[in-house]
Design a protein around this nucleic acid. Sequence first.
RNA 1: GGAGAAGUAUCGAAGUGGUCAUAACGAGCUCGACUCGAAAUCGAGUUGUCACGAGAGUGGCGCGCGGGUUCGAAUCCCGCCUUCUCCGCCA
Length: 431
Amino acid sequence: MLDINLIRENPGLVQEKLAKKEYTVDFAEFLARDEKRRELIYKTEQLKADKNKTSAAIPRLKKEGQDVAPVMARMKQIGEEIKAGDEQLADLDRLQQAFLEALPNLPADDVVAGGKENNQVVRVVGQKPEFAFAPRHHVDLVEQLGLIDYTRGAKLGGSGFWVYRGDGARLEWALLNFFMEEHINDGYEMILPPHILTYQCGYTAGQFPKFKDDVFQLRQDEEGGEGFTHFILPTAETALVNMHRDEVLDEDALPFKYFAYTPCYRKEAGSYRAEERGMIRGHQFNKIEMFQYTLPEQSSAALEELVNKAARLVEKLGLHFRVSKLAAGDCSASMTKTYDIEVWIPSMNDYKEVSSASNAGDYQARRGNMRFRRKATGRMEFVHTLNASGLATSRILPAIVEQYQQADGSVAIPEVLRKWMDGRSVLSLKG
RNA sequence: GGAGAAGUAUCGAAGUGGUCAUAACGAGCUCGACUCGAAAUCGAGUUGUCACGAGAGUGGCGCGCGGGUUCGAAUCCCGCCUUCUCCGCCA
């Protein structure tokens, strides 16, 4: 959520910045209603002050034995006027709140305008592997090696699901172990959150109401937000951003650095494409998510820390990848700035995202009311929140299998994972 | 799933229809006094938010959340959430 004062003071600037995200907005009506709203607040508050004063006098008058009937009649009249004013105000509030909530975050100053086509590659690590043989698709490799069972995945969960088996399951878990070990060494606190969250969690993250239909919703009963009360998390970010919702944090204790492992559940309705067969886009995938709560002045540096951490993981796995800085229009609504880490998938002849590192600034903190008291000023301020995958495995595993494949159909195991694979250096057909 | 109890400031907790919610009382924390220093003791301070205002400040709102009754609600009524206790059920 944006600071309403920013819009009041400089609507043109806000408009300009949102235009970088290819979001057009006109504040004229909003500001007119804001003016009206404040007049109304003043008017009803005058009435309430009058009511309070009069009400306090009643017991005194009674004590003095005076007739309070006329005063009570007046109180009733004031009460009705207040009620009418409050109802009018509530209607205005709803309109204004809905307008504000729908606005995306402002992009950082150093983020370029426009959509995907303006993304900039800021770093390339390693190079595309050259094969002296015809490289295979990861779907063929993982099936031949018995790592993934797509048929039975579909039998159990329908399309978009798969089963990790044997060394495939162990390789997947080795990746998670490797990531967790790195984060623990870097001083991040490990979190295992609930996988089922309340509607409010999605709201704070900035994912609801816009993307409420992209998650698996539970308990479609009664009210509770938008027709459902709980959902299965689409990313651990949704959980981690709510850890300190409605809390006042200690300035000296910041930053908080967390990481969480959870599966991520997404409907991905209609987004499946033939080129994404295999594990590029499924309804459930494993991910370790990093998350930070920082002081406002720390968040820019924290974003660089997070993207570097994520990049280091891919680098240690020996994979060829690149880091892109996203143009404003390609950042998600909540974010001021985002880097994507994209790993090379030979069969797709393309780079696919394995990590997205973003700075939400105070946007999520406003939605979730997460603040700290600045000791120097004594004032409350919103914290900044950042998140970054570290990493999602569902594209790392195909990248490993494809980039590490050998002529005989075996796949070498990245050095850093071997200690979780009985020290083996290769997965071969006879394994 | 059933029954009961509870939710008030940083914590414990009093208040059960008005004139002590700038919330009694106790503790914590901050500053000061005392002290060589500390403990103890004494004194002062210690919620957020919205509107108006240059500011000092003035006013509104807030007793888990949302409604209702009433001239007036922490207090009465209804719904919900969370926690605790007991019972039932169960991987």
